[in-house]
Design a protein around this nucleic acid. Structure first.
Lengths: 343, 343
DNA sequence: GGCGGCTTCTGGATCGTTCCAACGTGAGGA
DNA sequence: TCCTCACGTTGGAACGATCCAGAAGCCGCC
């Protein structure tokens, strides 16, 4: 039943329902928010009225009174053109669904200026959102510290690398475990000369992922010197790095910090007429769409983004409850999507 | 200057600013919303007070009074796994930026149920959003008709294919022009046997894109019979279709309705040891990340998604102004991103 | 029957903003 | 001097929900 068929344009209010049910406004409010306070027969009468009128609480009024917006702010960082990293998609979808089940909606914003704090401040001060989900926790990003100082509730996707004593809630994926998984997979296939192509040294995430590769190699007493390269996250860089490694270190397999770099390796192999998967194995990171549809398929470490979203919402619910409950950081394990590029 | 440094936890209100500036609340409100009503010296005094206190209007209160939320609802449809279609990303980013400049925020939602109207109704009735942007205008989707019946303001990304007399605002990309561009590009390269792989016949968008290919072919008096295939939008379907066409019609080039299908063609060519770009040319549709990073690069029709977002916001602004202004539908032209797969 | 104690329900106040009607002020004309 | 008029400014009411204190109803117990 919908109010849209009625003559009046305005949606029904609490008072309309109260009048129809023959009770006071407060009783209707209780029926909606604290049904257990009502006598069963009263509750039934009120709910009938609600259904007949198609009543739904006005969010603005509720927000004003409760000083909460039931919105969660998310800065939308688009994937860079020419890279394979469109993981945002899968993540955001689950985030929207999960938060919706908890009564929260996702509000997107972006920084128009170069200021990494752009957008956060305005939304917070205008009480447009109750909390934030912060995703870009790269080195030196001041968001976490700033939000903490503002006492703004937020949860981070990503560990506080540069401040181990940071007190905010976070959820992250164990990148080292992912590359270790990838490297072991290649070792089990019989490879011994496994190269690493990752990001520049100032990337905590890159170094973390690299450590997984190194750990798996050292575990089997295999050397890593001369087998690692650290470059920018572009296809061209990956291609150049792979080319240099092929010339100098003759690896039979590559583990990469991203699918973008892995695609660079495929380029380099293609340049030399080497078949990937058969002659040389390649593993990427992110299980992007590119990994899934490239001819043959690219083996790739898959982050449990759906699970990350669920954990983030869970943490936010704790943070926004009264009294606030703060769980410890959550570290999830990735899996490996095996395709032809690794045999 | 921020209020966060102050002792009181609550943000400053209009009344606080009014007191500090020595004027009434309404005058502050006017300073914010209708500055031209104030005498310059009063305006300056009020603005000083606003800056000193770091005042920003409370959105809930404003929304309640003005009966508007300044939010735009967008149903977030995630790309399917295993396809190359992650165009949402580029589109959403510009949408967030553009709408932000007009004072609107993007609210994401998703349908938890199978009901295509899921989510729309609740948001509308609870006055959580002022309008919607509808993106999935596939055949038989009742959203547009339903929203029209509810008198809910909305703008569609996609033409009202199944109802040419639909009265709502829309923005779309001329798919036929895109495939025509692609086909001409191949014709200019000397190809004459150019095949088409598209979607099943019940897809209006698919048939539109197909018509561009057919038009370009007929323009040069080239045959199209036996050169077209209509399948599902998966890599495997594209591969099978390409394989069959290669056997039966011996095309030297393919134009596809999506990058996903084009990747299927690349698979089929790879299976036969045919070099794409050199022996057989391939053009996709969407300029996805896959097209950009696949070895050699896939030539692809690029939709002006940024421009679409801008036009959508422009149309929404008209719709939400008083009185509402409804422009005609807007049809934008795609471009062609040429890469190695077409020579 | 009267009275505390518990549940259930009520009316008024409140959140922070904008709408509305009315008010004070100063310039200009009679 | 008085009146008109326009401009700038003001206080009260309203938006629709929830919080709060208290009233009404109901129970059993003395």
């Amino acid at each position: 039943m919908s109010w849209s068929g009625r003559l009046s344009l305005a949606p029904p209010t609490l008072a309309d329902v109260a009048e129809r049910a023959g009770v006071s406004r407060q009783t209707v409010s209780n029926a909606v928010n604290n049904p257990e306070l009502l006598r069963p027969d009263t509750l039934a009468r009120v709910q009938d009225a609600i259904n007949e009128l198609g009543y739904l609480p006005n969010r603005a009024a509720r927000n004003l009174r409760t000083r909460a917006s039931h919105m969660i702010g998310l800065k939308f960082n688009p994937a860079q053109e020419g890279t394979a990293n469109a993981a945002m998609d899968r993540f955001v979808h689950t985030l929207v669904e999960t938060s919706g089940e908890s009564g929260y909606h996702i509000l997107l914003f972006s920084d128009t200026t170069d200021d990494p704090l752009g957008g956060y401040d305005d939304l917070l001060r205008s009480t447009a959102v109750d909390a934030f989900i912060v995703t870009d926790t790269y080195l030196g990003n001041p968001q976490a510290a700033w939000l903490t100082a503002q006492r703004a509730p937020f949860v981070a996707f990503g560990r506080p690398w540069d401040n181990p004593r940071a007190s905010h809630a976070w959820v992250d994926v164990d990148g080292a475990a992912g590359t270790e998984l990838a490297t072991r997979h290649l070792l089990d296939k019989g490879h011994t000369r496994i190269a690493w192509i990752g990001w520049r040294k100032d990337s905590f995430i890159g170094e973390d992922r690299r450590s997984g590769w190194a750990r798996a190699m050292h575990e089997r007493d295999l050397p890593t010197t001369g087998l690692a390269s650290r470059v920018e996250d572009t296809v061209a860089s990956g291609r150049d790095a792979a080319s240099a490694l092929l010339d100098e270190a003759h690896p039979s397999a590559f583990v990469c910090a991203s699918d973008t770099l892995a695609m660079g390796v495929l380029h380099a192999l293609g340049d030399r007429g080497i078949y990937w998967g058969k002659d040389v194995a390649v593993v990427g990171f992110d299980d992007s769409q590119v990994a899934q549809v490239v001819p043959g398929g690219l083996t790739s470490v898959r982050q449990p983004l759906e699970q990350v979203a669920v954990e983030l919402v869970k943490a936010l619910e704790g943070l926004l409850s009264t009294p606030p409950v703060m769980g410890p950081g959550v570290l999830l394990s990735p899996t490996l999507a095996v395709r032809m590029s690794s045999g």
